[in-house]
Design a protein around this nucleic acid. Sequence first.
DNA 1: CTTCGGCTTTCACCCAGTGAAAGCGTCAGT
DNA 2: ACTGACGCTTTCACTGGGTGAAAGCCGAAG
Lengths: 255, 255
Amino acid sequence: MRAEPGRSVTSKVLALLDAFSPATPALTLSELARRTRLPLPTVHRRTAELVEWGALERGDDGRYRIGLRLWEVASLAPRGLGLREVALPVMEDLYEVTHENVQLAVRQDLELVFIERIAGRHAVPVLTRVGGRFALHATGVGLVLLAHAPAEVQEQVLAAPLERYTELTITDPGRLRRCLADVRRAGYAVSDRQVTMDALSVAAPIRVPEGVVAAISLVVAHDQADPVALAPLVRAAGRVVSRALMDPPPGTRRM
Amino acid sequence: MRAEPGRSVTSKVLALLDAFSPATPALTLSELARRTRLPLPTVHRRTAELVEWGALERGDDGRYRIGLRLWEVASLAPRGLGLREVALPVMEDLYEVTHENVQLAVRQDLELVFIERIAGRHAVPVLTRVGGRFALHATGVGLVLLAHAPAEVQEQVLAAPLERYTELTITDPGRLRRCLADVRRAGYAVSDRQVTMDALSVAAPIRVPEGVVAAISLVVAHDQADPVALAPLVRAAGRVVSRALMDPPPGTRRM
DNA sequence: CTTCGGCTTTCACCCAGTGAAAGCGTCAGT
DNA sequence: ACTGACGCTTTCACTGGGTGAAAGCCGAAG
């Protein structure tokens, strides 16, 4: 045979999409072939179909980019835009009151994904990107999501080395375990300079009957605010979103 | 042969994604099979792979939904989140000043797609959804996008019947043609009660050297504001976004 | 217990997909 | 102008991933 076996067509198509990343949002045909380890003609054929449908777009420079049609379909993801739609009004309220960064995130496997962010022009700059990923053990939202994740997920995170971002990042599994217990007990998480030395975040869970599906947080300058004072505000926001998730769309919920 | 020929595997995978819509964001296996006209075992196999990768998620109810992983990748679409990131600060400024609905849209084929919307709690309710589509000939953003679309696109839209939404919707091709000329000359578009009888929108183009890539608009109560007075504001917003699109990311632009 | 609808698995067949190879077009260096 | 390098596109004969009919499962309704 010629065809290298054990690789389905679908997996190749998905590998092509996977090749795109925040750092490389535009790729040439050869770059795609290299990244996916697929023969060039194969990539050529599959991308042609993806472009025709609109999953990819090809610029005048010959580079492929993610297409608007794919973005349209993806906007139907309940945990993506769906969640955002519900949470945004509450996030805007939080922003009105505090004029600080407001973040919304969900857990995906062993990391978190930022679903939305309101970044005040005058607030502490944060390095997160909507659609971007981050480790679970450092940020406020991450601690909330990890604290309420299935035991199996927690064990996997605790078993792996915990990356250090600042001198205050928790890298000791035992300490992290106790921290998570605190988060569950208090109903909110505080990450004080564990990601950058200038910022602190306070996060609260967003719940549906099945469990915690997302987390909402405020990010503020570390020397400017008292986390304990912010906690009730963030927790209340979390509860409002939780209720909004369950109440209005009686048929089409299910996170 | 058994396999009905003429249908590529990739096209089937894309058809599966296509089956999801704002009205049907969650589908059972059989519903997917019906909508895609694919045999049930085929759907079963392909969805299994899509779920494994994260393009789809399967709920406890057995229904398939668009997965977060697909949303992540799609967030890299330059004309989706990419454009939004650049335009959002300006949209927020517009909102601060007016406290009215602010919309951002691009053209996709013969329709427009809403990329972002800031809907004030107290502003006129609008029925648009981020990620949703709409006809080009009625809204403010639509008129701007159509006025600057390739001649071929304009002809196709003018040739098809123009759907009527209100008694003020332009449905006469000749009138629409003159209207588009006005839009090009004035540098902005006004849609006065052409979608709903309570609202009016003022829209301006967002340009890169290659042409108009998007449009930004204000939607206000029709009896509350003077479109001509709003026009400079919206046009200025469009120009600020246009510049932002070209200036800062010198490498990674290309809309 | 039986029926029904929806989901999953099996199995033998075969066409969509494959990759090596050759053909193009463009650009930089000589 | 020639040459070589590079990236993209097309060709072609082969084959294994994909196929759908059919049968097996499972839980809910009758």
